[in-house]
Simulated scan of single mutants.
Amino acid sequence: MPEIFVVRHGQASFGSDNYDQLSELGWQQARWLGEHWAQEAAQFDHIVSGDLQRHRETAQGICEGLGLDRHRVEELPQLNEFDFKRVMTAYGEKNPQAAPQTGATRADYYRFLKMAMHAWSAGEIVGAESWQQFEQRIEEVLGVLAAGAKGGKTLVVSSGGAIAMMVRQILGAPSHSVTQLNMQIKNTAVSHFFAGRSGVSLHSFNHVPHLDNTKRREFITYS
């Protein structure tokens, strides 16, 4: 049966001028995942990623760990994250009292993002794309991935929000579950899906086999 392994990008550069690049740890997380799969003799028939910088770099790091050529990676922009900065800006414009102030912590930032996502999904604000457009493109790319699997194994690199939307759609969960799932997904976590005649089904979610040990557990991150 066709299998799809969807990986969230490695740790990005939170707080820097360019969030959309991996931190040093993010690169290492990606290489560790590739090395883990190399040790398991894992092989992938297709490798696909979004076209954001953090997606490309994560795919490159995984390929380095696997000993593969990065040029094998096909890019699908439909796998990109929603524009969370625009969503947060729109929510802040409507609710300025809720916006994080100077000196706000990372926890404050994520609380604000959570509120903004709920407002976006409820149609109270408009991002760079509507919630319905986000749902539609993820549904479409799931179909593309399922059709392209053709009995083999497909490795996909994407982002937390996009992966959360995939899981929501596959499980038929309510819209607000996307926000809850998004906040849980670890950097370079793997979610495993099967693609069959009846559609795509979830096998496992948010697994970090390359980090879940006493030596590396401190390197589990969420941004």
Rank of each mutant, 00 (worst) to 15 (best):
E140T: 14
I163A: 06
T188S: 10
Y91R: 03
A128T: 15
I125P: 01
G151M: 04
G160R: 03
Y91N: 04
A189M: 05
L113Y: 11
Q180M: 10
T188K: 00
V156N: 02
S158T: 09
A122Y: 05
G196W: 11
G148F: 05
P96S: 01
T102A: 15
A162H: 03
A116T: 07
G161A: 13
A98M: 12
Q184G: 10
M183C: 08
M166L: 06
V190S: 01
P96W: 02
I170D: 07
M183A: 12
G92M: 03
A107H: 11
G92A: 10
S158Y: 01
S158L: 02
I163G: 09
R168L: 09
F84H: 15
H118F: 14
Q101A: 14
R106E: 13
F82L: 13
G160L: 06
G196F: 06
R111Y: 02
A116K: 03
F84N: 15
S191Y: 08
A122K: 13
E135N: 13
G143P: 11
Y91P: 09
D83R: 09
M165D: 07
K114V: 03
G123L: 07
M166P: 05
A162T: 12
K186H: 02
A149W: 02
E140P: 00
G161R: 03
R197P: 06
E124C: 10
K114C: 06
A164M: 04
G103H: 07
G103M: 09
A128W: 09
N182M: 13
L145E: 05
V87Y: 00
A146C: 11
A104P: 02
Q97F: 04
K94S: 14
G160F: 06
W120N: 03
G161I: 09
A146H: 13
K150C: 04
S121I: 01
A99V: 13
S177L: 11
N187K: 10
V144P: 02
Y110P: 06
L155N: 07
E135D: 14
G196L: 08
F112M: 06
I138C: 12
S130C: 11
Q184S: 12
H118C: 11
A116L: 03
P174Q: 04
F84R: 12
K186C: 02
G103N: 11
T179P: 07
I163S: 00
F112L: 08
H176D: 14
E135P: 04
A98V: 10
K85D: 14
G172V: 07
K94W: 02
V87E: 07
K114M: 05
G172L: 00
A189D: 04
T179L: 04
A162Y: 00
S158F: 00
N182T: 11
M88E: 12
G143E: 10
S191A: 08
F134P: 03
P100E: 07
T89F: 12
K114I: 06
P100Y: 10
R86S: 13
L181G: 00
K94I: 08
Q132W: 02
I138S: 01
N187T: 09
R86P: 06
H192V: 12
G172H: 03
F193R: 08
F193S: 05
Y109S: 15
G123Y: 06
A164T: 01
T102Y: 12
S159N: 05
V87Q: 01
M165K: 11
F194V: 15
V144I: 14
G123I: 07
G152D: 07
A116W: 05
M166V: 09
F84S: 12
R106M: 12
V156H: 05
L142W: 06
S177G: 01
V157L: 01
E139D: 14
A99E: 12
